[in-house]
Simulated scan of single mutants.
Amino acid sequence: MDHVIQFEGIPMSKSMRGMCKEEDYAFLGEKGESHKETDTLGEDWKEDKVERVRRRRERVQQEQERVREVEESRKEKEQQWRHHVAELASTQEQRLRDRLARLRRFRDFQRSVLAEEMSLQTDSESSQALDQLLTRI
């Protein structure tokens, strides 16, 4: 019967009161509660907004961290690649030097063998002949 007391406070004619039913005024009782709910909804909305902002910041921070890690990984791989290429270049250069040294020793060996075979000729003629023979070989 609380609703009767509440509804008596509403100004309206007696005939109008008779026509209206309790459920027609039910929203009046809920109005005060809905205002409280609206306040809690507003607070919930604010909390949700703060939570969304916090999650967005976390995602941005995680993305920045991921980008930084990818960049560091790329730099490290690039440095490893440069080191690898430098090692290959130095190895190849060393092989070429070794090959050049072997070829020079072989040329010297050929020159000495040919010099022994041509020892009968004069020195100036033999050096020219040696050069010609080595050039042909």
Rank of each mutant, 00 (worst) to 15 (best):
I137G: 13
D24Y: 01
S13M: 10
T38I: 13
L114Y: 04
R74G: 00
G18E: 02
W81A: 09
R82K: 14
E125H: 03
R66N: 00
T91L: 13
T135I: 11
E72F: 07
R107D: 14
Q61I: 05
S126R: 15
E23P: 02
I10T: 05
V85S: 09
S127T: 14
Q79I: 03
Q92V: 10
A26L: 10
R57K: 13
A115T: 04
Q64H: 02
Q6G: 06
E76W: 01
A86P: 03
D24F: 02
V53E: 14
G9Q: 13
W45F: 15
K14Y: 05
V113R: 07
R54H: 02
A26V: 04
A101K: 14
R95Y: 06
G32E: 15
M118K: 01
R68I: 01
L114A: 04
D123I: 11
W81D: 06
R107T: 14
K46Y: 11
G32D: 12
D44G: 08
R59Q: 04
K46H: 10
R66S: 00
V70Q: 13
Q61T: 10
R17W: 00
E87R: 13
R111C: 08
W81N: 09
H84T: 09
A26R: 05
V70I: 09
M16C: 05
A89K: 15
L28Q: 02
Q79K: 07
R74L: 01
A115Y: 00
